[in-house]
Every structure is written in C-alpha cells, then in structure tokens.
Design a protein around this nucleic acid. Structure first.
Length: 447
RNA sequence: GGCCCUAUCGUCUAGUGGUUAGGACACAAGGUUUUCAUCCUUGAAGCCGGAGUUCGAUUCUCCGUAGGGUCACCA
C-alpha cells in the first residue's frame, strides 16, 4: 500500500505551494490506489496557531484534497512518542545529551540532544531527479531535540513518517538538503528509508521562490479573488507536470487517472497569472446559469441584492453575458457593484449625448429619427430572446445602416462606449425599460 | 562563499541521436452581419556557451556560464 503525506506547519496561511504539494501527493497516492495522510507539524509552539491549522485544513478540503486518516495527527500531541524514540536513540549510542550554552538565551546552560554523525556519504534516489549524493560530514552532530520532551523537526518527521508507514515522501525541492539529515536519523533508529520525490518549486516572475513580497501567495487570497477550485487544481497540476499529451483541461478525477510521476518536471515553474486567468475563464464559461449564480452569491454574499433596481430575473438573463467576459470575479470593479455590467439594473443617465454619434455621423441629432423608429418597432416586438429582438430590428438596420442604428441604440441602452450588443441588453432589461431608455436618449438629443 | 539542484519561444511545456523543433497562455495582424467579449485564421518568438563522443547532436559526456535552493536549539 502506497502512503503519501501532507505535513503543513500551521505557522502561516495555506501557501499556494503547499496546496500544490498536497495535490501531487494526493494524485500520486490516488493514482496508485494508495492513501494520503495529513499531519499538522506544530512543534514550534511560539509560531503555530490553531487558526492557521483550521485555515489549512479548510483550504485543502475546499480543493477536494481529502486525506485518509480519521484523526488528524498533531505533533504537539506526540511528545511522549518522540521521548520514547529519543530514549531509544540515546540508548543505542547514536545520539547523546550535550551540555552547552543556549542559542536562544545566551549565558544559559542547557542540555540539547545531538545525533552522533557517522560522517558518511549518503546517496538517495529521487524519483524526479535520480541519484543525489551528499557528504554528511559537513552537517556535524545535528541537534535533534531541545530536551527529551522537546523534539525538533528532523526527528519528528522521521518518527511520524515511520509510524504512519509513509512509503513516498513527496515535497518541495527546498527539502532536498534536509533529506540526508533525515536519512541519518532513520538509520540511527533502524527505520526503513522511504522513497523520495522532490518537486520543482513554484517561482515568482523574477524566478525566485514565491513569497509575500511577490504579491498573493495564500490559497485564500486566490479564492477570495474569485478563482474557482477547478481552475486552481488544474493550473497547479500543470505547473511542473504534464500529461504527455497536448490536453490541458482536467478535472481532479481525470488528473488522478492521467497522473504519472515520470512526467514531473525538474526545473522550477514560474507562476503565470495570465495563464491562470485563462484556466479560470475556461471553468467559469462552463458553469451553468445556476452554478454561476451560486458562484456569484458565494463571493458577493449580500451586496449583490443591494444594487439599485436589483432584479433576480435580470441577473439570470445577464449571466451568459458576464460568463463569457470575465476571467475572475475580481474583474468587477470592486465588491460593491457589478462594474461595467451595471446597465442591467440602473438606467444610464449621465452619458454625454455626443456618445450617441456613430462614426459616420456628423451629429447625434441624425440618430434621433432612427431611435424613434426603433422604439416604434420594439413596441410590438417579441422580447423572449435576443434573437427575436434582433429579427425585429434587422430589416430597418439594413435600410439605414447597421452601425447607424445599432451604435446609438446600444449607447441608449448601456450608456457605455463598450458593452454587449443592443439585442442582448434589451432582452436583459425587458421591453418597458428598453423603451424608456430609448426615450431618454431622444430627450438627451433634444431638437 | 560551501554543498545540492536546474537549463527548449516572454511564460507553462512536448521532444529522449536524424523533426519544417510541436502545443498552450500572452502578444501582433486579419476575419466572424455595429462597439466590447467570444470564436476562427495567420504571424512573430526557443534548443545558454565551448569542447568531446558520433556519419550525425536540442537530445549523451565534460568544462564553463546563468538561475534557483539550502546552510537554526524554524518547519
């Protein structure tokens, strides 16, 4: 049975890189019929918080990356276990208690536990990179515990991986240099060595490790900006891995069946927000009206309904238009309105009359009779679809010129130089509102 | 600086000794019955450098160079 693990440290928000590491562990385990276990590495009592732990757990679950252990393993609850193995490693002579000056509080004499380094050359096989060799002599006698009841990272990782029967350690490339230390501890304890796979790092655009100074790095910040979990999973999977085909769109389930560790890249991958946006657009576009509405409601909880002249009916008709035009919800100007899509609710009143002027026209005045004619035609029109509205107006447009009619009509309905076509807007706002807006435009033109 | 890892279009990548070096994002131009968006077509854009192995290197080896990671009583 293949067992992988995702052991985040609850000392900060769920980093997008941690989410990706979890994804790869999940995909590998599931593709092999194995399991992934979750472990909270909260041995650093001063930096770990319950809130961060909850955020990390919620984030991974939101993505659908579920682990297989029923109870969450917390290293803070394992002190007695570490003590047992610490006693064992001291008893077998591979570690010793060292009385020395504290590094944290200079002047204070403390007893730390150090591994007796055999000073040997260690070679381990990395599933991504092949053999990697280190001379551990330069590591010295590493400190594995502050005291018998206070084990440190390298020691706790080795013990917990052993206790969880972890077969594959899949983690970021930044852990490569930790591997020989952990192997030394495994050997001192007589544990079997798991298989290792070190993933290439996600890089910022300057090719350095992605960090806060590069902008958004937490999963929650992307979630809040309106990225869908489908897009996040899909994009993250393709950052440092490829299916071996030219296909790019995959669901989590499809990724499980396509996943192959041999296709993991060796070099770091730059996180490209533009491509990420494209993925998000792909998934948003595939949402049904109901799914999109749920997506909107989730991200604009109450404010959506506080828009002036809000109407659920109109919103439902607006959705197909928004769906094909946005990459993320952040594309709306801010989280208080629908930005450039506000024409769906409030009538545009403050645009300049000159905006009604088509490029072939010399003054907006010439558009007035066209708008009046359109108004007449629309009075008897079928408003059940954009197409029926279009059919009503088409013959007349061919007569006077399409731009000559549709441009001023579109401005009259949207008040914007760029917007969806007039048929779509008329359909969204309905007949009564359409006629009122055309009348308003005519009034603006005056004589 | 020591140690370790890496190196194909701007970015993500396919490629495993012989290819017109392929795809995607982004970009540019044109088109799709008015603007925006969508969609379609086309285009520009790449094998880090030098030796070596070989009939032949993007591909194998070595040396450079560049970039990254890591050097805690953090994880």
């Amino acid at each position: 049975m293949i067992i992988t693990r995702i052991p985040p440290s609850p000392t900060g928000h769920l980093h997008i890189g941690t989410a990706r590491t979890a994804l790869f562990n999940y995909l590998f385990a599931k593709s092999q019929g194995g399991k992934m276990v979750f472990r909270s590495e909260d041995t650093d009592k001063t930096r770990s918080t319950k809130a961060f732990e909850e955020e990390i757990i919620e984030g991974l679950q939101w993505l659908g990356l579920n682990w297989d252990n029923d109870v969450i393993i917390r290293q803070s609850e394992h002190a007695p276990v570490y003590r047992e193995y610490l006693e064992k490693i001291i008893a077998n002579g591979n570690a010793y208690i060292s009385k020395e000056e504290s590094k944290n509080t200079p002047g204070l004499l403390v007893e730390v536990i150090r591994l007796k380094n055999p000073n040997k050359v260690i070679t381990f096989n990395d599933l991504v990179r092949g053999d990697i060799t280190f001379d551990t002599t330069e590591l010295g006698d590493i400190v594995i515990a502050r005291s018998i009841d206070d084990a440190l990272y390298h020691f706790t990782v080795v013990v917990d991986d052993f206790l969880s029967d972890v077969t594959h350690v899949i983690r970021g490339e930044d852990h490569i240099s930790n591997t020989p230390r952990q192997i030394l501890i495994q050997e001192a304890l007589g544990f079997e060595r798991p298989l290792y796979a070190h993933l290439p790092l996600i890089l910022a655009s300057d090719r350095s490790k992605m960090s806060k100074r590069h902008g958004a790095v937490s999963l929650s910040s992307y979630k809040e900006a309106g990225y869908t979990k489908e897009a996040i999973i899909n994009y993250l999977a393709l950052l440092g891995w490829n299916p071996g085909t030219e296909r790019e769109l995959f669901t989590l389930t499809e990724l499980i069946s396509e996943f192959n560790i041999a296709h993991i890249q060796k070099s770091g991958a730059v996180f490209d927000i533009k491509k990420f946006n494209w993925f998000n657009h792909q998934y948003i576009e595939r949402y049904s009206t109901e799914e999109f509405l749920a997506y909107l409601e989730q991200n604009f909880p109450t404010r959506l309904r506080e828009l002036p002249n809000f109407s659920t009916e109109r919103l439902l008709r607006l959705i197909p238009t928004i769906r094909e035009r946005i990459d993320t919800l952040a594309d709306f100007h801010d989280h208080t309105d629908l930005g450039e899509y506000d024409f769906a609710f409030a009538a545009p009143l403050d645009y300049e009359p000159t905006l009604l002027e088509w490029k072939n026209d010399t003054s907006p005045t010439v558009a007035k009779p066209r708008l009046e004619k359109a108004s007449t035609l629309l009075t008897d029109a079928d408003f059940s679809s954009p197409e029926s509205i279009k059919a009503t107006l088409w013959p007349y447009a061919e007569e006077v010129g399409k731009g000559e009619l549709f441009w001023p009509l579109r401005i009259a309905l949207s008040g914007r130089s760029q917007s969806p076509d007039p048929f779509t807007i008329a359909y969204i706002i309905g007949q009564e509102e359409t006629l009122a807006r055309i009348q308003n435009a005519c009034d603006k033109i005056g004589e």
